[in-house]
Design a protein around this nucleic acid. Structure first.
Length: 1035
RNA sequence: GGGCGAUUAGCUCAGUCGGUUAGAGCGCUUCUCUGAUAAGGAAGAGGUCCCAGGUUCGAGUCCUGGAUCGCCCA
């Protein structure tokens, strides 16, 4: 007859086990089946934030993917229909850069020369360079997501959905063209992303000049400071802080206007302050520009006047800021606010145009020195210095970047700021501080979203127009076909660029603008674009909107979390997600960010091959709350294996071993359950409650830790205390342990899906997989008995105290003692009495005796319970403490144990203190073997008589025989023929307890005298014992 | 420069509503238990709860300022 359960293969590692489980999932099609079985059930919606597959997946992707996995698995088991459509972000600069590097391109014009069609074809291939790596890793870590039908932002349907969204925004008047100040490389002719800018900072020396701007209606001069003299030719205005204090100050015969805080630093100690006033007093004052090439009215009515700006600081410079609208973010915003005309006298190649007279044609940064000399010659320079600062350079060619106002398309998100904030209010964030912190603050400071990019590989901006300003924003391929008469093939550049739309008024044909759109708009459109809605499957979109759950790393607050919210709010006036889990960053074990250059990246396969995917997952779920980041290494994952997975696995192995040895029928009716069984099932029920409650709150950490705590109790208390019942084949014990293990496997299924399924499959197997079962509920045999749990806590505490007392007395546990004396009364005593067997066994004592009064063992001391009395007495607490200290502990402890109350007098008033108001602690008397905790204590009777000593010897002998069994390589169920020799008194003790020795060691015969072979030798209490064991013939 | 977060034992992390002796695991020392375990138990060493003020009868916890680290923005 086959054993009830598959025996464990002790050679198999966790990674090998997982590969085998993966194979079983494939055979049984478990993922698809788990979704299929919930068809028609209430949906629970997850959105996959699409990664880009043009780089290899790293450990931080494992973090995101396991958290994206656990909650959908959980919700599926809770009865929801959880579709999980995978997705890939396909467009964008990172892809282009990878291709440029592959082709050895160094400038943007290389792409045009190579041909956009060919370049984009390369990009299309490059996107999926590492698709296989991603798919393999995704499967291996057990992330269940539909990778066979993923959405891809480059697909025609997807692009069309994005066009539709843009056209609706246009209809709502939310799409417009403006200028954006961007970092620009004049050599490559390219705008750089912030990520690229961050790569290229270099410390350089630039001129630092203080320039005088004479006021037109006054003899004073404004002082401004700049490190980019080349922008002075297009000075449009100056800005001051309305709240800051400014002064007129005389120095060296001239009168200047500047911030009070800057006077000494800029003008020196001798400057004489003539007058002070707030910045707002300067508003509208006219001044003479530093260079004459562009007149004030070129900028409009506010040209060359003083304006008020919120970005002005007096910390460096003069507190008056030179503003060149085309060359700075703040400058541009200020210009917008005051209606300044954008005048940019610098060509795209970085040279001045003809408006700048003698400097025309010169590269602007090379003109700095001559411009400064020019100022000096005209008496307009106060001071010129060299200034060392970090300035961004092109990471490709090293050219200093210019900040440059360029035409750009915007989505007017700031008009709907209040709606964005209202939508955010409906979202539950994990951790909560993101909501009104990082994300909320970001929304409050919302500025319009610049969505166009002067690039090639992206969703083309669907705007067609002609020089006359006739503009069409196309919302679908059909619409483009109707308007242009041309078929739309590939909607990417350059093909779509070739389609012309005839002018409705018979003018010039409309051509598409050259830009593509920000990839964040692509991914933010996924709620509908993943289905190709609204062109297709509009109902599918509606069923799957909004998402119940999204989960990404913290840096996505400005990325995907924002783009999803913005698009959804603009189009549908509501948040696209209800719960968001933010994940922190991974650092190495020294807290440093992982980076290629530092060489401290942990490749996920190292972790998986060494410890397995379950260990990887468990580490991420339980080691800490996920949003604070992880200090991470291959070794730390190993700890989570040792602490939890091995403990679980060994408990499971124990069950399989003895169930097979005893041929336990898993379906047989169990006998009556004992207190230990009821206790462990109650603990299981408590665990189920906690796990459900915490998982419903998206708190996998606390949920997982609760499971670990239960497995620890199961292994180190339930099994430990019940071993004899398993040896004896007690059906109630097997039924209880099996219930616990199978329930744990279902609790663990979302966390560690491999080991959970293996345990379930071997111990239960009713369903093809644990992932097709329902999540555990409390009820049936798994019920709570809180009184029993409480009693067991008391018992475990008693045992702990007793073992500590043994340790103090240096008495081995194998030496039986006559009695443990427990100080306990009332409920405590009843609890210990109910489970006295456990205490006797664990402490190896013949009896447990009780004393209600501790007087014979120690004395009490009493202390006020501050937590209870603090609120009642407030600042009189020190008086209360003094009054309590004056009470007689012996008397008070007696009164309180009988449920009485004592009185104290504080400031002439009487107060009654009951047992909850005071804390009793026991102070051991000198010379007793006593361990105490609060009002509870255990003492041991340490006197030994001859009988106890002989019993102790027998326990030692049994231990020696077991060691011999193990050394002989016997299986736990093997019967033996036992031969003993040695010290006569020792042997006589063994003879006296021979039946017990034989039963404990599974000896069919015991004989005395020498055997021929080498014995297993032991020394007990200085007495020799020789042991021979041989496997007995089977019955 | 602004915003957000973090800082507790050698390491990884808990610490509830503010409550008087700040915990766990790993690691270390000593002892111990073992008929599943790479496990378990006991004792010990190990702490400026980042710093400084403040509020309070009482602060790891609340407030202010600062330091360091990280992320985002400028």
């Amino acid at each position: 007859m086959a054993p009830p359960h598959r025996p464990l293969d002790r050679e198999e590692s966790f990674p090998q086990l997982e590969e085998r489980v993966l194979e079983r999932w494939r055979e049984r099609d478990v993922f698809a089946e788990s979704v299929r079985r919930r068809e028609g059930a209430p949906p629970w919606v997850f959105y996959e934030g699409p990664p880009t597959a043009n780089g290899r997946p790293g450990s931080h992707h494992v973090l995101a993917r396991v958290f994206k996995d656990i909650f959908p698995r959980y919700k599926t088991m809770r009865g929801h229909y959880v579709e999980r459509k995978g997705g890939w972000d396909c467009h964008g600069l990172p892809v282009e850069i990878a291709v440029e590097q592959e082709l050895g391109f160094t400038r943007k014009s290389d792409i045009e020369e190579y041909g956009i069609a060919a370049f984009n074809a390369k990009c299309r291939e490059s996107v999926f360079t590492y698709l296989e790596d991603w798919n393999r890793l995704t499967e291996r870590i057990g992330f269940w997501v539909d990778l066979e039908h993923p959405y891809r932002t480059l697909d025609d349907d997807y692009v069309e959905s994005v066009w539709c969204a843009l056209s609706r925004l246009h209809e709502k008047g939310l799409l417009y063209e403006g200028h954006k100040v961007v970092p620009y490389c004049t050599r490559d002719g390219t705008t750089l992303s912030s990520h690229e800018v961050a790569q290229g900072y270099k410390d350089v020396e630039d001129p630092s000049v203080y320039v005088k701007l004479p006021l037109l209606d006054d003899d004073a001069q404004l002082l401004v400071w700049t490190t980019t003299p080349w922008t002075l030719v297009s000075n449009a205005a100056t800005a001051v802080d309305p709240e800051l204090t400014y002064v007129r100050a005389r120095a060296g015969g001239d009168v200047y206007v500047l911030a009070e805080a800057a006077v000494e630093r800029v003008l020196g100690e001798d400057a004489e302050v003539l007058e002070s006033f707030p910045g707002r007093a300067l508003e509208g004052r006219r001044y003479e520009a530093p260079f004459p090439y562009l007149a004030a009215d070129a900028y409009g009515p506010r040209g060359h006047t003083v304006l008020l700006g919120d970005f002005v600081s007096a910390d460096d410079g003069t507190g008056i800021v030179h503003t060149a609208v085309a060359f700075g973010e703040d400058d541009y915003r200020l210009g917008q606010q005051y209606g300044l005309t954008v005048v940019n006298p610098v060509r795209l190649d970085g040279t001045y145009d003809e408006r700048i007279g003698p400097y025309a044609g010169r590269w602007v940064k090379d003109a700095d020195a001559d411009l400064v000399e020019d100022l000096r010659a005209r008496g307009r320079l106060l001071r010129s210095e060299r200034y060392l600062h970090a300035y961004p350079h092109c990471w490709r060619c090293g050219t200093p970047l210019l900040y440059y106002a360029k035409p750009s398309w915007y989505v007017a998100t700031s008009q709907l700021r209040d709606k964005l904030l209202a939508a955010n209010e409906t979202v539950t964030w994990h951790p909560p501080h993101i909501k009104h912190g990082r994300f909320g603050k970001w929304l409050e400071n919302n500025v319009d979203w610049a969505i166009s990019r002067e690039r090639y590989w992206g969703t083309p901006l669907p705007v067609w127009r002609n020089a006359a300003g006739e503009t069409v924003v196309v919302g679908s391929f059909d619409e483009l076909r109707e308007r242009s008469g041309a078929d739309v093939g590939d909607p990417h550049r350059p093909y779509v660029d070739e389609i012309e739309i005839p002018s409705p008024t018979g003018g010039e044909p409309l051509r598409r603008v050259p830009e593509v759109i920000d990839v964040w708009f692509d991914s933010g459109a996924m709620p509908f674009a993943q289905w190709g809605a609204p062109q297709h499957d509009e109902d599918r979109f509606e069923r799957n909107f909004p998402a119940d759950f999204v989960c990404e790393a913290l840096d996505q607050t400005r990325g995907w979390f924002y783009s999803l919210l913005a698009i959804s709010t603009l189009l549908f006036d509501r948040a696209p997600y209800e719960n968001v889990v933010c994940l922190g960053l991974l650092t190495d074990d020294e807290g440093l960010k992982m980076s290629k250059s530092r060489g401290n990246i942990v490749v996920p396969w190292e972790v998986i091959d060494r410890h397995g995917a379950d260990a990887f997952r468990w580490y991420f779920f339980t080691t800490k709350q996920p949003w604070d980041g992880y200090r991470f290494s291959v070794e730390t994952v190993g700890e989570s294996v040792r602490q939890f997975l091995l403990q679980l696995w060994n408990t499971y192995g124990f069950h399989v071993l003895y169930a097979n040895v005893n041929d336990v029928d898993p379906d047989a009716a169990a006998g009556p359950a004992g207190d230990l069984d009821r206790w462990v099932l109650s603990r299981l029920a408590a665990t189920v409650e906690t796990v459900r409650e915490r998982m419903d709150a998206y708190d996998a950490t606390t949920a997982g830790r609760a499971i670990a705590a239960f497995v620890d109790e199961l292994s180190n208390w339930y099994v430990r205390r019940s071993r004899r019942r398993f040896w004896d084949g007690d059906p109630a014990a097997f039924a209880t342990l099996r219930t616990c293990l199978v329930t744990v496997s279902r609790l663990l299924a979302p966390f560690t899906p491999f080991i959970a399924d293996e345990i379930y499959d071997n111990l239960d197997g009713t369903e093809p997989s644990v992932h097709l079962t329902d999540f555990p509920e409390v009820g049936g045999v798994v019920v709570r008995d809180e009184a029993l749990e409480c009693a067991m806590d008391t018992v475990r505490e008693t045992v702990r105290l007793g073992l500590a007392a043994r340790g103090q007395a240096k008495l081995k546990v194998r030496q039986p003692l006559r009695a443990a004396v427990v100080v306990a009364a009332g409920a405590e005593r009843a609890a210990i009495d109910r489970l006295a067997d456990v205490v006797r066994d664990e402490l190896n004592v013949k009896a447990v005796r009780y004393v209600s009064e501790a007087d014979e063992l120690g004395s009490f001391e009493i202390k006020p319970n501050y937590r209870a009395l603090g609120p009642r007495f407030g600042k009189r607490m020190p008086l209360v403490a003094a009054a309590v200290a004056a009470l007689d502990p012996a008397v008070v402890s007696g009164i309180l144990r009988d449920g009485g109350a004592v009185g104290i007098s504080v400031e002439g008033e009487e107060h009654r203190l009951a047992s909850g108001d005071l804390q009793l602690a026991m102070q051991p008397l000198e010379g007793y073997r006593l361990e105490r905790e609060g009002s509870h204590a255990v003492a041991l009777e340490v006197e030994l008589d001859a009988a106890l000593v002989r019993e102790g010897w027998v326990r030692e002998a049994i231990h020696a025989i077991q060691a011999a069994r193990k050394a002989a390589g016997l299986a736990v169920e093997d019967r033996i023929v036992l031969t003993l020799d040695g010290d006569p008194e020792l042997l006589s003790a063994v003879r006296e307890h021979e039946a017990a020795v034989a039963a404990e060691t599974l000896a069919v015969t015991v004989s005395y005298g020498r055997d021929g072979s080498d014995p297993h030798a032991a020394a007990i209490d200085g007495r020799e014992l020789s042991v021979w064991v041989a496997r007995a013939p089977s019955r």
